[in-house]
Amino acid sequence: MIAGPVPVIIPAAGAGRRMKADIPKQYLEVSGKTILEHTINKLLSHPATGQIIVAVSDEDPYFEQLTVAQHPDVRRVSGGKERSDTVLNALSDLLERQSVDWVMVHDAARPCIRHEDISRLVDELSDEECGGILAVPVRDTMKRSDQTAHIKHTVERAMLWHALTPQLFQASVLHQALIEAKASGIAVTDESSALEWKGYHPRLITGHADNIKITQPEDLALATFYLSRNKEETC
């Protein structure tokens, strides 16, 4: 049983250059609020989550302008150069201030996360050695290319998954894995990959495909649709 509210780290120090916007993508507006506000509100309104630690660049002028930045359960910390640096900074800050057993990490640009998926993640990982992640099975035919974008071969999609967030891990285990991966120069693309490098086997918990990460301009319209459909889950 995972006891007590679980703190959530939101790495939000990136620029999101693929959006081709004048501001970081987490501050673009969807349905009257910024993407980051939707994400934070969705997490704050779930009973299993506790403090929200938002890691942003020290030069970020936008976060403090958000109403949610003044929420008593929202804390700003300094981000880093890479995502893994940002999460490590936030997790180190958290562990210095309080004793924490479990921690979630959730992408700033995933505002459409469903409450039911957060509940499933928490409920199903209570007996796991290190934790696990939300994910969805790959449905499309997968191709591997060469460096010139020509197909080399078709990849068997059985047992392939799209990794999502939140990802939920024992805080001390994740912290140590991130420290060692950084010291060894290991590329960490998500929190699970740091634990995989250490020899752990995080569990995959089936989520919903509408938990999209807003990356391209065309994702904004899709996020608007999903948020309007699930607006009862925001606070």
Results as ranks from 00 to 15, higher is better:
residue 2 I to N: 01
residue 4 G to S: 09
residue 7 P to T: 01
residue 9 I to F: 07
residue 13 A to Q: 14
residue 17 R to D: 15
residue 20 K to S: 14
residue 21 A to V: 08
residue 25 K to R: 15
residue 34 T to F: 13
residue 36 L to R: 11
residue 36 L to W: 09
residue 42 K to S: 11
residue 46 H to Q: 09
residue 49 T to F: 09
residue 49 T to C: 15
residue 57 S to L: 05
residue 57 S to E: 12
residue 58 D to R: 11
residue 58 D to P: 01
residue 62 Y to D: 09
residue 67 T to V: 06
residue 68 V to H: 08
residue 69 A to I: 11
residue 69 A to W: 13
residue 69 A to D: 10
residue 71 H to G: 12
residue 71 H to W: 14
residue 72 P to R: 12
residue 73 D to E: 15
residue 79 G to E: 12
residue 81 K to W: 13
residue 81 K to Q: 13
residue 87 V to F: 05
residue 88 L to K: 05
residue 96 E to W: 05
residue 97 R to L: 06
residue 104 M to W: 10
residue 106 H to N: 06
residue 107 D to T: 06
residue 128 E to V: 06
residue 129 E to S: 14
residue 131 G to K: 05
residue 139 R to K: 14
residue 143 K to T: 00
residue 144 R to W: 03
residue 147 Q to D: 12
residue 149 A to F: 15
residue 150 H to K: 10
residue 152 K to I: 08
residue 153 H to K: 12
residue 155 V to F: 01
residue 155 V to M: 05
residue 160 L to A: 12
residue 160 L to T: 11
residue 164 L to N: 11
residue 166 P to T: 07
residue 167 Q to V: 09
residue 168 L to M: 12
residue 171 A to D: 11
residue 187 A to Q: 04
residue 193 S to T: 12
residue 199 G to K: 04
residue 201 H to L: 00
residue 205 I to C: 08
residue 208 H to L: 03
residue 216 Q to S: 04
residue 217 P to E: 06
residue 221 A to C: 07
residue 222 L to V: 06
residue 223 A to N: 02
residue 228 S to E: 14
residue 229 R to I: 06
residue 231 K to P: 01
residue 235 C to L: 09
